[in-house]
């Protein structure tokens, strides 16, 4: 590749790379589904052990009234947990940044909350809180820490000379926060939010499973627990498929928001050759 190439060849190579990055995962998916189909068919595996892809798809369509409603429930919980985590994480990071003593007092507990497995906290939350609140609380607990940690890092990574400049011109605390620290922290904050999106879905699912069939919930994870209890394996797979899709869509949306917010100025969102 030491020979200089003309821009047209260069562009064609880039387009080919882009195509491959989409085509290859799709090919893997198709291969897996085909193998899955034939493994089930050739071995005559009954649907209550391993349903084939066709059965899962048919179940998804047939049970859509139930599963669709559950999807909405889980997404709504996830969204609420995510918003709580985003608001809580960012607010805490700002407070910690403004007051060292507050940070010293509270940060250890934020860490403890983070390192304690949420699956162990969920049953307790379900006892003390109404079920919908408990589920949102779980999503919050799992998701807020990356927002807090990343935003804190961002607020502290302001250029020393820029900070000096603000000091030189007599900027108030509020001005420094709004005009310097928050914009500088934005890329980090968005990185934290991207992680938090997926985690709040996990939190919601964990809480629904913990609530189990005893719960009054009707989310997708509850459907999985319920189907497992009734040995309705095709429906388990269909619900799982929906959960995965939801996770992918959440991640994609947050990545898009991040890209749109940063594309004008931040390295991470700029093309490789600009």
């Amino acid at each position: 590749m030491s020979v200089a190439r003309d821009p047209q060849t260069e562009a064609r190579a880039a387009a080919a790379t882009r195509l491959l990055r989409i085509a290859l995962p799709v090919a893997v998916l198709v291969a897996v589904v085909v193998v899955w189909h034939f493994v089930v068919k050739l071995n005559d595996i009954p649907p209550y052990l391993l349903p084939g892809p066709g059965v899962v798809l048919r179940t998804l369509i047939a049970d859509w009234p139930v599963l669709g409603a559950s999807l909405v429930t889980t997404l709504w919980t996830t969204l609420q947990g995510f918003l709580a985590a985003a608001a809580g994480g960012i607010a805490l990071a700002i407070l910690f940044n403004q007051s060292r003593y507050l940070e010293y007092s509270l940060l250890p507990y934020a860490i403890i909350l983070q390192v304690t497995p949420v699956i162990a906290i969920a049953p307790l939350l379900l006892i003390y809180l109404p079920q919908d609140t408990a589920v949102i609380a779980c999503a919050f607990i799992v998701a807020f820490f990356p927002v807090l940690a990343n935003t804190t890092l961002g607020l502290n990574s302001v250029d020393r000379n820029l900070a000096g400049l603000f000091q030189l011109y007599g900027a108030s605390r509020a001005q420094t926060l709004l005009r310097l620290k928050l914009p500088a922290a934005l890329p980090y904050m968005l990185g934290g939010l991207r992680i938090a999106g997926g985690l709040s879905l996990i939190g919601a699912v964990v809480a629904e499973i913990a609530a189990g069939s005893a719960g009054a919930g009707s989310g997708l994870a509850y459907r999985i627990a319920e189907s497992s209890y009734r040995l309705n394996i095709p429906r388990m797979f269909a619900a799982l498929l929906l959960l995965s899709l939801a996770g992918i869509v959440i991640y994609g949306l947050l990545a898009l928001v991040s890209h749109l917010a940063l594309r004008r100025w931040h390295e991470s969102a700029l093309g490789k050759d600009t």
Binding site: D159, N161, L162, G164, L165, F166, L168, Y169, G170, A171, Q175, R179, L180, P183, L186, R264, W265, H266
Partner: peptide, 24 residues
């Protein structure tokens, strides 16, 4: 004060950067 590095806010336009001391 002029630093060795330009020390500009990457998110703000040239105008925004120059206006900073007056906005503050």
């Amino acid at each position: 004060f002029v630093f060795q590095e330009p020390t500009l806010m990457p998110w703000a336009s040239v105008r925004g950067n120059v206006a900073l001391p007056l906005r503050l």
